[in-house]
């Protein structure tokens, strides 16, 4: 029995799920292109400004970012859920529906055998959702290019940017699919499996962004207040004599110049602030405070992409193997 004949079975049963995924990603890609084109046109004017270090050019770049960056931020926030959708709508029902309706008793007693039947579904679908995700992350990178070029604070390593660009989106999509598949095999009911897949994906994405990704390489720690553009600042704080400086300490130092620190990095000058004070940060440093910044430089983007995609791919393979193992040993 050639695999080609199994491919027909997979296609016949899952073509609507695949079409749905292509439609959702396609609609989002269209939206990114429609809103991305005017953004690029607006950025062309900024990029053409010369000399780029002049005040007027900096002003134009700042204005461009304040016009477009918030909207881009919301869009990226919404797109975060896309891998989860693949996990919930393509991964979770794949086997859960067979269990829920009892059709696994039909499928697993045909001559093709349940192991090959499972592989014949899993492999092409995993491949296709990965390809769709790779194509989509290309569109996201194109869409984000002007924002990155304009020197937005949220550089390529920023959490909502990092996992939608490069190869990370494809890796996350594959992992979400694998999570959904395993959840469906364990839970054996479509809707609970979908929720389980969403919850597991969300937990993994949170833990990765908050605890794992900052440590792929030892972060750079510096007392230099001028952080390179596009760096991913993991944390930043004022220190006095080796101890963290409270807001009160900062404000006490700033009292003579009548500046109030609302947060450790947001300063409000008062009526008697000297005109020649300059940057309050420099003033604080000159008066015995130290600004300690931990960050990941933007040029580690591809290293981080490979590390994250590598372990996500390994995790996906483990989840697939566990799924196939469960299918093999599962009693009816």
């Amino acid at each position: 029995m050639p695999w080609r004949r199994m491919a027909w079975v997979t296609w016949r049963q899952h073509r609507f799920a695949l079409a749905g995924i292509v439609a959702v990603f396609g609609a989002a890609a269209t939206y990114l292109m429609v809103t991305g084109l005017p953004m690029r046109a607006a950025y062309a004017a900024v990029a053409g400004c010369s000399p780029s270090s002049s005040d007027i050019c900096r002003q134009a770049a700042t204005e461009f970012l304040s016009n477009y960056a918030p909207g881009v931020g919301y869009t990226l926030g919404l797109l975060q859920a896309f891998p989860a959708l693949v996990g919930a709508f393509a991964g979770a029902p794949l086997l859960a529906r067979e269990f829920e309706t009892g059709t696994f008793r039909y499928a697993w007693t045909q001559g093709f055998g349940r192991t090959r039947w499972t592989l014949g579904k899993l492999a092409p679908l995993a491949f296709m959702v990965t390809v769709v995700a790779i194509a989509f992350s290309g569109v996201v990178s194109w869409y984000l290019q002007p924002i990155v070029d304009a020197g937005d604070n949220n550089g390529p390593l920023y959490p909502t940017v990092f996992d939608l660009t490069g190869i990370a989106l494809a890796a996350w999509t594959l992992t979400a699919f694998a999570i959904g598949l395993l959840a469906g095999t364990l839970v054996r009911r479509v809707v609970p499996a979908m929720f389980a897949a969403l919850a597991l994906w969300a937990g993994l994405a949170f833990v990765t962004g908050a605890f794992l990704r900052p440590h792929y390489q030892a972060p750079v720690v510096t007392t230099n207040p001028n952080i390179p553009i596009g760096a991913w600042v993991i944390n930043q704080g004022w220190f006095k004599d080796g101890n963290p400086a409270s807001l009160d300490t900062i404000n006490r130092i700033l009292t003579p110049v009548d500046v109030r620190a609302i947060t450790p990095d947001l300063f409000q000058p008062g009526p008697s602030t000297p005109a020649n004070l300059g940057d309050p940060v420099q003033y604080l440093i000159q008066h015995g405070l130290m600004l300690l910044t931990t960050y990941q430089p933007a040029d580690r983007f591809w290293t981080f992409q490979w590390i994250e995609s590598g372990w996500l791919l390994a995790l996906s393979l483990v989840l697939f193997v566990v799924t196939v193992w469960l299918v093999r040993r599962r009693a009816a």
């Binding site: 016949r12 059709t103 008793r105 039909y106 007693t109």
Partner: peptide, 17 residues
């Protein structure tokens, strides 16, 4: 598997096919 055909209880079939 090749030589045995099985019809399970409740005749599971793919309803949308």
């Amino acid at each position: 598997l090749d030589g045995i055909a099985f019809v399970a209880q409740d005749m599971p079939l793919y309803k949308n096919l």
